[in-house]
C-alpha cells in the first residue's frame, strides 16, 4: 500500500533522512521506532507531504532550503511531488505530533472542521463513530479543545483524522507524554480502528514497549538511517532494541 524507496531529505546541509526505504502492506500496523532527532517526524511530514508545502512556501519567498530525493508510492500511485491536500484526498492522513487541535473551537466543531472533505451526512455518522470509539469525548462535546487534557486532545486528534475517512493513517508519536493507562486506551483504539474501519496504520514512537506487542512490522531509525527492521515480536526480543527503546 505504501512503498518508500531511497528517501533522502536535507534541511540546508543537514541530512535528516538518509537512504530510507520501507514498505507497508494493506491492513498492517507498522511502527517506526527512534529517539529524538532520528528523523521520525521528517519521515511523517515527507510521507504526508507537509514538507512539500513548506518547500513551496520557501520557494515563493526565493529560498530553497529543503531538498528531497527518492520516491513514495501510495496505492500504486507516485505521490512524491503531490501537494499534501491532494494526498489527503487520496486517503493518506497524518496526525501530527503533540496532538494539534483547533484550540478555540469546541470539540464537535473540531470534528466538523476535520470533515471538510466529506458530505454532511457522512460527517454526522463519523462523529458518532468517533464517540463510539472514545466514549470519554462524549461528555466533553461542548468543551473548547484547548481546555482538554493531553490524552483527550490525542483522542480528538485521532478522531479528527478518522473524520477524513483515510485508507492509511500516519500517527506521529501518539503516546507522547501520556500515562500508561491512557497509552493502553490509545493502543486499544488503534487496534479497534484497524479491525473495524480496515485501516492501515503507521505509528512512530520513541518508547517501544507499549506499541511493539501489537505491530506487524517495525523499523528502527537512527540518525536518519534504517538500523534494523523486522516483525514486532522479533524486535521485542532484540537486545539492542531492548537496551535502547525499552527504558530498561
Amino acid at each position: 500500500m505504501l512503498q518508500i524507496s531511497n528517501l533522502m531529505v536535507f534541511y540546508e546541509n543537514a541530512l535528516a533522512l538518509n537512504d530510507f526505504s520501507m514498505k507497508v502492506e494493506k491492513g498492517q500496523i507498522v511502527a517506526v521506532i527512534g529517539s529524538n532527532s532520528a528523523g521520525k517526524t521528517t519521515l511523517m511530514n515527507t510521507v504526508s507531504g507537509l514538507i512539500i508545502d513548506t518547500k513551496i512556501k520557501e520557494q515563493r519567498k526565493g529560498g530553497e532550503r529543503i531538498t528531497l530525493y527518492g520516491k513514495i508510492v501510495f496505492d500504486g500511485k507516485d505521490i512524491t511531488e503531490l501537494h499534501p491536500s491532494e494526498r489527503v484526498k487520496e486517503g493518506l492522513v497524518l496526525c501530527r505530533e503533540r496532538h494539534p487541535i483547533f484550540p478555540e473551537s469546541d470539540l464537535v466543531e473540531n470534528l466538523r472542521i476535520a470533515g471538510y472533505l466529506r458530505k454532511r451526512s457522512e460527517v454526522s455518522s463519523t462523529i458518532e463513530y468517533v464517540f463510539d470509539l472514545f466514549p470519554t469525548l462524549l461528555r466533553l462535546k461542548t468543551r473548547k479543545a484547548g481546555f482538554l487534557s493531553g490524552g483527550e486532545q490525542q483522542m480528538l486528534t485521532i478522531g479528527m483524522a478518522l473524520m477524513v475517512k483515510p485508507k492509511l493513517l500516519l500517527l506521529d508519536e501518539p503516546l507522547l507524554g501520556l500515562s500508561p493507562i491512557m497509552q493502553k486506551t490509545l493502543v486499544d483504539a488503534i487496534l479497534k480502528i484497524r479491525k473495524e474501519a480496515g485501516l492501515t496504520i503507521v505509528v512512530t514512537e520513541q518508547f517501544a514497549r507499549p506499541i511493539l506487542p501489537v505491530i506487524d512490522h517495525g523499523y528502527v531509525v537512527e540518525n536518519g538511517m534504517l538500523s534494523l527492521d523486522g516483525p514486532g515480536l522479533e524486535l521485542m526480543e532484540n537486545p539492542e532494541v531492548k537496551a535502547a527503546y525499552f527504558g530498561v
Binding site: S85, V93, R96, P100, E109, I113, V164
Partner: peptide, 19 residues
Amino acid sequence: LAFRGIAQDEQTALSLGIN
C-alpha cells in the same frame, strides 16, 4: 469551518485536506 480551521492552525488544517 475551513476559515475557522486555518485561522487557528494552518498546518493542522492542511493535514486534514484543507488547501
